[in-house]
Amino acid sequence: MSFDIPTGTRGRKHTSNPLVRLGNRFMIRRARRSDSASLGPMRLLVLTTVGARSGQRRETPLAWFPDAGGGWLVVASANGAARNPAWYHNLAAHPEATIEVGGRTVPVTAEQLHGSEREEALARIVAAAPNFAAYNDKTDRRIPVIRFRERPAPA
């Protein structure tokens, strides 16, 4: 498993400001309040990672899509920004994370999809939520698709 998408040379401006953070807090509360929180055709989960540099706990609301193998798929689109989102770098450093989805907290391991597996997953995601197709047009970065798989309970 490798997280290997470099920064692009063009793309939408990466925003991190108080308004974005406030919106994320609202979406996190929304995702936690409902067993089936959604935003249009997309369902929401809350990803909890460990900061790659800070070591601090980080929470991020993300749209997710079902994986054919029973996992959860997310797209590190950052709205077509030239840089990958911070949560992507956090997962690259610490692929074991937790997600809150469907009213439960699930320990997961993240893996980046590559090749035909990525292309097939992205095609299913775009079919379910066509707005994801536009992100590819905004940047020259290859947008990562990440699969979360539930970790087995410790013995």
Results as ranks from 00 to 15, higher is better:
Thr48Trp: 00
Glu59Tyr: 00
Ser38Leu: 05
Ser116Glu: 15
Thr15His: 08
Asn131Val: 15
Glu117Ile: 01
Ala128Ile: 11
Gly70Arg: 05
Phe148Ile: 05
Arg141Met: 07
Glu96Trp: 01
Gly11Trp: 02
Thr98Cys: 09
Thr15Gly: 02
Phe3Met: 07
Ile146Ala: 01
Met1Gly: 14
Ala155Thr: 15
Asp140Ile: 10
Gly71Ala: 07
Ser16Val: 10
Pro61Trp: 04
Ile5Ser: 15
Ile5Ala: 15
Met27Ser: 08
Val50Lys: 12
Gly69Cys: 00
Arg149Thr: 13
Thr49His: 00
Arg83Thr: 12
Pro130Cys: 08
Gly55Met: 13
Thr7Trp: 01
Leu19Glu: 14
Val101Lys: 10
Leu62Met: 09
Ala127Phe: 05
Ala31Pro: 06
Pro41Lys: 07
Gly103Cys: 10
Gly8Met: 03
Ala78Ser: 10
Val145Thr: 07
Thr49Met: 04
Leu113Ile: 11
Thr9Trp: 00
Val50Ile: 15
Ala63Pro: 02
Pro41Ile: 13
Leu45Ala: 11
Asn79Gly: 11
Val106Glu: 11
Arg33Gln: 13
Arg57Glu: 15
Pro107Asp: 14
Arg124Ile: 03
Pro6His: 03
Glu119Gln: 12
Leu19Lys: 12
Gly80Ile: 11
Asn17Ala: 05
Arg118Ile: 10
Val106Gly: 09
Met27His: 00
Ser116Thr: 12
Asn84Met: 03
Ala128Thr: 15
Arg29Cys: 05
Pro61Ala: 02
Trp72Val: 11
Phe148Met: 06
Glu59Thr: 14
Val106Tyr: 09
Ser77His: 06
Ala129Gly: 06
Asp137Lys: 15
Pro85Lys: 09
Ser34His: 12
Gly11Thr: 05
Gly51Pro: 08
Arg151Lys: 13
His14Met: 04
Asp140Met: 08
Ser34Asp: 09
Arg141His: 06
Ala52Lys: 10
Gly40His: 07
Gly71Leu: 06
Asn24Tyr: 07
Ile125Tyr: 01
Gly23His: 07
Ala129Asp: 15
Gly55Ile: 14
Leu91Ser: 05
Pro144Thr: 08
Arg33Pro: 01
Asp4Pro: 01
Ala82Val: 10
Gly11Cys: 07
Leu62Phe: 02
Ile146Ser: 03
Phe148Lys: 04
Asp137Gly: 09
Ala31Asn: 03
Ile125Ser: 04
Ala63Thr: 14
Phe3Ala: 08
Asn136Ser: 14
Pro130Asp: 08
Leu113Gln: 09
Ile125Asn: 04
Ser2Asn: 10
Ile125Leu: 08
Ile5Pro: 02
Phe148Val: 04
Asn90Gly: 09
Ala93Asn: 00
His94Thr: 13
Tyr135Leu: 09
Thr7Pro: 02
Pro61Gln: 05
